[in-house]
Design a protein around this nucleic acid. Structure first.
Length: 590
RNA sequence: GCGGCUGUAGCUCAGCGGAUAGAGCAUCGGUCUUCGGAACCGAGUGUCGGGGGUUCAAAUCCCUCCAGCCGCACCA
């Protein structure tokens, strides 16, 4: 990840070593000090405001608790709060504190921001190890829309955590075991008739469907596949060898999709179900030793309290099936242990669709009962809603099949390319195609990331790839326009210092937006909701275009020109960095 | 039946305890001899699913009802 790919301009020479204190944090801590003198820990409730730059709403609640009149209390807090040189304050309404930043403080903060490659986002003081389980397609099938959200959201969270300074371990828990693979092995043998060396699966989906069809129609094949499952789980060397061949091919295939999507996952992050195979019997044995296992209907179960079925009876987590095979509960438990014991996870995230909510609750509950999941380890199922078609039903192709991710991306690239052609840019074909890819990815990813992940969303390629509105391409364009300004300068822009006077409302509004980047990023990450950062970036883009329209940059002169160039540079860096931590490219030119 | 998620402008969505509920798209009307018009400004529409409650303050928290989606023992 590049930190500020957009900018080649030199920063202020007075580069600091200390991280800057964000505007929000500065105000918050000054107010907190004052509130603490009246009641320790009382929340000032500091927010951005449309009536002033910031507003603090905590006075009313505190007044209530202290049985005082809010306005008197507000007066007293203002006396106690050291806001000199930072902000002027007005008491409004029942007891709101409306804060307006002083010109000096604004200028100071902007200068700090200019000098900070991280744009005010501190690298964390204590690095935690975060294991993020995401994407997790079935390796036997081709990636489809059903895998999109986990992949895109998971990757954004991974990038954000990494940028924050944490140690991220991505785990792609692919389905690479069991009956589907036994089927594929048999099918492969049928097709190649024993000749080994150069297997080629080609179209993975087609290959899987052939096997599936045979499995359903051909009793003899089904029997062979069954036997093959047994051989696979028993570790038969020849079976394992063939399995390996198929898995490697499948993973290589998935890897291409990840590259096309611009996702950071690589083959090294693939730790599929098969990885846990050897640990499953220990999982059961240890649960048994802990006295947690109850046999029910031939299956070995754990009954975590609080879960009931349709009849109101206790609901089991089936750790070993009645046929003595292991289900995914066992491998998920093994994964919890592995991640805690061997990866030393401080935090584990599972980016998996909401239908599995109960399953994960039960797995986590059992892991806690068994003592495998310490209280200090944050363990969270990061859920998300479905991708729907225009009819509000699960997104399917016209023929009713699941839509392949690759073809979705191809279509988006085609649209983007066509749009670029229409605008007859002077790009050569190679550059244009590359650009179309970046735009297509941005369109798809931004559409996915920019709505609250809990909600379903409607997949509408026309809307998401549009260059106007709240879309990925629009944000890319906002960035590209800024970069073009610096290109037009013809020479590097490197002022020794910039005096920010921010005399027009648009300049000031933009500047305030840029200063709010740290809290937007932190709020987004803390809530594991990338859409908050999207909302922020779109807001910056809107402030930017208003500024851009009202404030000539290149045709202005002297200090004013430098100030405006500095705002452009900061805005470009903000968009570029913000998009990059979401996994979206910010091209220099569109 | 139990549990979970969702219901905000014509459409797609933000807002999730604070002062008149916002944006994008679409519609209509303006601006500007375009530092890239893929622009800007303005206009309008909302019982925030219904009803109760808590609170100085509720789209936001609690209860209840309605509607829709999803889970609820051996497929992951």
């Amino acid at each position: 990840m590049s930190v500020s790919p957009g900018s080649r301009c030199r920063r202020d020479r007075s580069a600091r070593l200390e991280p800057m204190t964000s505007t929000y944090d500065t105000l918050a801590s000054r107010l907190q000090n004052a509130f603490d003198t009246l009641e320790v820990g009382a929340d000032p409730v500091l927010r951005t405001s449309d009536r002033s730059d910031y507003q603090a709403n905590g006075v009313m609640a505190l007044a209530k608790r202290l049985a005082r009149t809010p306005r008197d209390l507000a007066e007293e807090i203002l006396v106690r709060a050291d806001l000199t040189g930072v902000a002027t304050v007005e008491i409004a309404g029942p007891g709101f504190l409306n804060l307006t930043l002083t010109p000096d403080f604004l200028a100071h903060q902007l200068a700090q921001l200019r000098a900070d490659a991280r744009l005010g986002i501190d690298s964390v003081a204590t690095v935690r190890t975060i294991v993020i389980d995401y994407s997790a397609p079935n390796a036997a099938k081709e990636m489809h829309v059903g895998n999109l959200r986990s992949t895109v959201i998971g990757d954004a969270l991974a990038r954000m955590y990494r940028f924050a300074g944490h140690h991220v371990i991505a785990r792609n828990h692919v389905g690479d075991w069991g009956t589907p693979f036994a089927m594929l092995i048999e099918h492969l043998l049928d097709r190649n008739q024993g000749e080994d060396s150069s297997f080629s699966i080609g179209d993975l989906d087609g290959f899987y469907k052939e096997a599936r069809t045979k499995f359903d129609a051909d009793a003899a094949f089904k029997e062979r596949a069954r036997a093959r499952v047994v051989a696979l789980q028993a570790g038969d060397p020849e079976t394992l060898r063939l399995w390996r061949v198929i898995v490697d091919q499948s993973i290589a295939y998935l890897d291409l999709v990840y590259q096309d999507l611009g996702v950071t996952l690589t083959v090294n992050d693939v730790v599929g179900e098969s990885f846990y195979n050897d640990m499953l019997s220990d999982v059961v044995a240890d649960l048994q030793a802990a006295g947690l296992i109850i046999e029910s209907g031939g299956a070995l179960c754990v009954f975590p309290p609080g879960f009931t079925n349709r009849e109101g009876e206790a609901l089991p987590l089936i750790v070993r099936k009645s046929d003595e095979g292991f289900g995914y509960a066992a491998s998920d438990l093994a994964a919890v242990r592995d991640r805690v014991d061997n990866l030393h996870a401080d935090e584990m995230l599972y980016v998996v669709g909401v239908p599995q909510a109960q399953h994960f609750e039960m797995v986590f509950a059992v892991a806690r009962m068994a003592g495998w999941l310490p209280d200090g380890v944050r363990c969270e199922h990061v859920t998300f809603g479905n991708v729907l078609g225009p009819d509000r039903k699960m997104f399917k192709s016209r023929s009713g099949e699941t839509v392949k991710l690759a073809s979705l991306l191809d279509e988006a690239i085609e649209r983007a390319d066509a749009a670029l052609k229409e605008r007859n840019t002077d790009l050569d074909e190679m550059a244009r195609t590359q650009l179309a890819v970046e735009i297509a990815r941005a369109a798809i990813k931004y559409a996915d990331l920019s709505t609250d992940r809990h909600h379903d969303y409607i997949f509408d390629l026309d809307r998401m790839i549009a260059f106007e509105g709240d879309t990925g391409p629009y944000l890319q364009y906002a960035h590209a326009r800024l970069r073009s300004i610096f290109r037009r300068l013809g020479s590097p822009w490197e002022p020794a210092s910039v005096a920010f006077s921010l005399d027009t409302p648009q300049e000031r509004h933009l500047a305030l937006g840029l200063l709010a980047f740290p809290e937007a990023f932190e709020a987004s990450l803390a809530s594991l909701q990338p859409h908050r950062l999207c909302v922020y970036l779109f807001d910056v883009a809107q402030r930017l275009t208003a500024f851009y329209d009202a404030c000539p940059v290149l045709t202005s002169e002297g200090a004013l020109r430098d100030q405006r160039l500095a705002l452009c540079d900061l805005a470009a860096r903000t968009l570029s960095l913000g998009l990059s931590v979401l996994g979206i490219d910010a091209p220099e030119q569109m």
